[in-house]
């Protein structure tokens, strides 16, 4: 690691504190993700679908969201995004272990089906792409009431083949709604590569058809991602309508804990993805700029490790859902 003589104050106008905070968010999500994989292999978490490798774009996006004011319609790989917005490792470990106090679903859904009313993170199911239209509807309500809230919605590129994706873009663009569409494009719909999903290499090419800006960004570069997301959020907040962001990311793990990507991906492809890991590269970049020393980074890791240990112990000790509660919350009281 090259260490600069003098610490830079900013990269591309983003100040050092913000950059360090972003790194911490990314690292925290990665360490939580790794912890959940470990617990999965130990049999304490029955299923996991990971966000590893996608932390940079998620953190960059989350930094521009005003939690509880803006709205978020996430998808299942958005672990880092939920942490930036204010959910905690304890929250997500409770969900991973399907405990009664899981704030996302109370242990009713598979892990990584996020939702938190307090933070305006809508509840999400397993059917992909439905959330796009919800985002458009949320933004419509904000517009009707004259509020400046922005709605961000995320997805993998696989879900962009669904009709709901197009219906949402069409509607949000037609009425200049304040929606930011972010595609975390890891190039694989489970096992099917982009070349067999769509005729163009970039999801963002489709923006042209809806008369809105479409932007490709390196989703492993937190600085570029921060700038692109910032512009899209500002544009939406100013009432100028939606943006479609295509953030290219690697997929560092199999689709899920029930999948083995070595069965359908070459060793070279897996190695290429590993070299595109956002985390180590960002640490090196901050180091080069004198913004984060190796010692700082070690201290950060140690603190986060302690947080993970405490959260894991708390989640393990938490109660399972009461079997009788299976009947609750079908309909409310009129």
């Amino acid at each position: 690691m090259v260490v600069a003589n003098r610490a830079a104050r900013a990269i591309a106008g983003i100040d050092a504190d913000t950059l360090r905070a972003m790194y911490r968010h990314m690292l925290r999500s990665r360490m939580l993700d790794e912890r959940i994989w470990l617990l999965n292999r130990q049999g304490l978490v029955r299923f996991w679908v990971s966000g590893m490798g996608q932390e940079a774009i998620q953190v960059a996006l989350g930094m521009h969201v005003r939690p509880g004011h803006d709205w978020v319609a996430p998808y299942y790989r958005d672990l880092a995004l939920t942490l930036v917005l204010g959910m905690t490792p304890r929250d997500q470990l409770l969900a991973a272990m399907a405990k009664a106090d899981d704030p996302n679903t109370g242990g009713r859904q598979m892990p990584a089906h996020f939702g938190c009313r307090r933070l305006n993170i809508i509840t999400t199911g397993s059917v992909v792409a439905t959330q796009f239209i919800h985002a458009a509807g949320i933004a419509l309500a904000s517009k009707i009431r004259g509020e400046d809230a922005v709605t961000v919605v995320t997805t993998g590129e696989g879900a962009t083949s669904e009709g709901d994706f197009h219906e949402a873009l069409n509607f949000a663009a037609t009425h200049s709604l304040a929606v930011v569409f972010v595609v975390e494009d890891n190039g694989l719909a489970i096992s099917v590569p982009t070349s067999k999903q769509m005729p163009t290499p970039n999801v963002s090419d489709r923006a042209t058809g809806y008369g809105i800006p479409g932007v490709v960004v390196d989703g492993t570069d937190p600085v570029a991602s921060y700038l692109v997301c910032g512009e899209a959020v500002a544009r939406a907040r100013a009432g100028k309508g939606p943006t479609l962001i295509d953030a290219k990311v690697p997929r560092l793990t199999s689709h899920s804990s029930d999948d083995d990507q070595r069965r359908y991906r070459t060793a070279e492809a897996l190695e290429t993805d590993r070299t595109h890991d956002c985390l180590g590269r960002f640490a090196a970049r901050l180091g080069e700029q004198g913004m984060l020393s190796a010692r700082d980074e070690e201290a950060m890791r140690a603190k986060l490790l302690a947080e993970m240990d405490v959260a894991t112990a708390q989640a393990e000790a938490a109660s399972d859902p009461d079997p009788e509660s299976v009947l609750l919350h079908v309909l409310g009281d009129a």
Binding site: F132, H134, A136, A139, A141, S142, R145
Partner: peptide
């Protein structure tokens, strides 16, 4: 879907 979104948002 738009109505679901609008209902989420009050």
């Amino acid at each position: 879907g738009v109505c679901i979104g609008a209902a989420f948002n009050g």
